Simulated scan of single mutants.
Amino acid sequence: MSRTLRLFQLMQALRQGPGPKTAAGLGEELGVSGRSIHRDIATLREMGAIIDGEAGYGFTLIEDNALPPMGFRDTELEALVLGLREVQQIGDPDLAEAAGEALRKLQGRLPPRQSHRLRHAVLTAHRFQRPEAPRIRVSDLREATWDELEVLFEYSDAKGACTTRQVKPLSLVYFDHSTILVAWCLLRQDVRVFRLDRMSNLQITKQSFRPHRVALLREALAKIRSQRLAPHDGTGSPKAAEPRKPPD
C-alpha cells in the first residue's frame, strides 16, 4: 500500500465512528504498526488536518482542512437541518445563534437544488417547554470544558442550600427540562451532575486537567450507566433512577 493511499485511509478511519481512536487500533485496521500511525498523524497535521490527542490517549479528527468538503445526501441534509433547529430551541443564546449561523452558511455553500431543499425543509423542531434558563454564561463553561480547566461555582440544591464547588467539567447534557454538567467534583471526590440553572458565580481557574477529560468522561458515563443514575436529584449528586419514572 502506498503512503498516499494509507494517509487517505487513515483520514477515513478517523472520520468514522466516535473517537478517540488509539494508534494500535488504527494500525490494526490499516495493517501497519502503531509507530507508522504516529508518523502519519504528524504528516496529516503538517498538511492542515486538526487532530486532537496524543500517544496513550487516542486521536480524534477535529477539522480536515487538507481535503475538499464532502457533499451531503438529501437525508444527511435533513438530519443536519433537524439537529440545528433543535439546538436553536434548547441551546443557550450563544449556541442557538451559532446554530442559525451554521444553517445560513450551509445554505450559501450547497448546490442550488440542495440549498432550495434546506430553505424549504419539511422537517423542523419546536419545544413548547424549553429547558430552564442558566444563570451562568454557558459559552464560558463550554470553553473551559474544551480547554480542560477546572471551574469554580456556587450551587443551590432544590431546598436552597448553597455550596461552593470546584470541578473538572467533562460534558454538558441537554434534557427536556434542564441542562446538566457532568463533572468530577473535587469536594466529593466522585462523579457529580449539576443543573446549570442552579449554578452561579462561575469562575474559570488556571488549574488544568489535560489530557484526562476524555478518559474521565468515559469512566463517568460508564458509572452512570452501571448504576442506572438519574440526571440529578437537586443536590448535584446522582441518584438511583426509579423504574419508568422520568428525570426530575
Rank of each mutant, 00 (worst) to 15 (best):
M1K: 11
M1R: 11
M1F: 03
R3M: 04
F8Q: 10
L10V: 03
K21F: 08
A24Q: 04
A24V: 09
G25A: 04
G27A: 07
E29V: 02
E29L: 03
L30Q: 12
L30F: 05
G31F: 13
V32F: 03
V32N: 05
S36L: 06
I37Y: 06
D40I: 04
D40G: 08
T43S: 13
M47K: 10
G48S: 04
D52G: 05
E54G: 06
E54Y: 02
E54L: 11
Y57S: 08
N65K: 08
A66R: 03
L67H: 07
F72T: 02
R73L: 01
R73Y: 02
T75Q: 08
E76A: 11
E76I: 07
L77T: 07
E78L: 10
A79V: 04
L84N: 03
R85S: 02
Q88E: 09
I90T: 05
G91W: 07
G91R: 09
D92R: 09
P93C: 11
A98Y: 06
E101L: 09
A102F: 08
R104C: 04
K105R: 06
Q107C: 05
P111Q: 09
P112T: 00
P112A: 00
Q114I: 01
S115G: 15
H116K: 10
R117E: 00
R117H: 02
R117M: 02
R117N: 01
A121I: 03
A121S: 15
A125R: 03
R127N: 00
F128N: 10
P131S: 06
P131C: 02
R135Y: 00
S139A: 14
R142W: 13
E143M: 03
T145L: 14
D147K: 13
E148D: 00
E150V: 02
V151G: 03
L152V: 14
Y155W: 08
S156W: 12
A158F: 14
A161T: 00
T163S: 15
R165S: 05
Q166N: 03
Q166Y: 04
K168E: 08
P169T: 05
S171H: 14
L172T: 04
V173I: 15
F175W: 14
F175G: 12
S178W: 14
S178K: 10
V182W: 15
R188F: 10
Q189Y: 06
V191P: 12
V193R: 06
V193I: 07
F194G: 05
R195D: 10
D197H: 08
R198E: 07
R198W: 12
S200E: 14
Q203S: 14
T205S: 14
R210W: 14
R210H: 13
R213Y: 14
R213S: 12
R213L: 00
R213K: 13
L216D: 15
R218A: 15
A220C: 11
K223Y: 03
K223L: 07
I224G: 04
Q227L: 15
R228A: 02
P231S: 11
H232T: 08
S237G: 02
S237W: 07
A240K: 07
A241F: 00
D248Y: 07
